[in-house]
Amino acid sequence: MANLFESLRQGTAKLLGMPVLASEHGQQVDNLIIYVHWLMMALFVGWLAYFAYALFRFHRSRNPKADYIGVRNHASNYIEVVVALVEAVILLFVAVPLWAKTVDKFPAEKDSTVIQIVAQQFAWNVRYPGKDGEFGAQDMKFVSADNSFGVDPADPKGKDDIVTLNEVHVVVNKPVLIRLSSKDVIHSFKVIAMRVTQDAIPGMRIPLHFKPIKEGRYQINCAQLCGEGHASMANGYMIVQSQEEFDKWIASQTPAGAGGGSFE
């Protein structure tokens, strides 16, 4: 029984052509999509069968005289009730709790990779807290063409922060905590394999978290129309690597200095 269900689920995943998966919660995203599609298929196939039969059975050549009343039983009401119930169950016991987890249950900063990302036309500015493990103080009023993060030039904490362009390094099997914003128009941070999508909205800093479970180099998509370069905002990559490699990489980076995001 259990493995029948499982093989059914995997079958559907194949059928829908779910892309590669590399994050913990991603499995649940896929499952929800799959369950809903079961409901859809049931309805569609069921109705289609009825539909085809009705069209055949009641073609005027076979049924020259129409019946004034038509359907007499109330089966349809039960179908509708069932649909409503199934939707209710999915909603209350799957969709809502899962969303609650995504936007509420944030991992503790200390045991996760904390990153700031500021989108711009047409690239991703990425910022890590340096050795001191703390970001420099920031304020919207400091934001400018060459200070995407609005880092306070006066703040020493900012001095050792590490800034990269279009390259997000994270540690495998360790929660990632991203604070997302934009300095010009609305973009949307999407990593398909991680099943994360989050709009990057100027004037807001939105947190998102996920746990990568597969090492590799993944593409970062921009999912929100952001101007003529929207389609080519495709040079961002997320590198999922082991702790050692990650530390090596961090060490190899030169601190940005207070300025923040100038990438000459």
């Binding site: 109705w47 009825y50 539909f51 009705a54 069209l55 009641f58 073609h59 005027r60 049924n63 020259p64 005289k65 129409a66 019946d67 009343i69 038509g70 359907v71 349809s76």
Partner: peptide
């Protein structure tokens, strides 16, 4: 859909 049932469909 149910309206089709019992009709004389042309």
């Amino acid at each position: 859909f149910l309206s089709l049932w019992g009709g004389s469909i042309r």
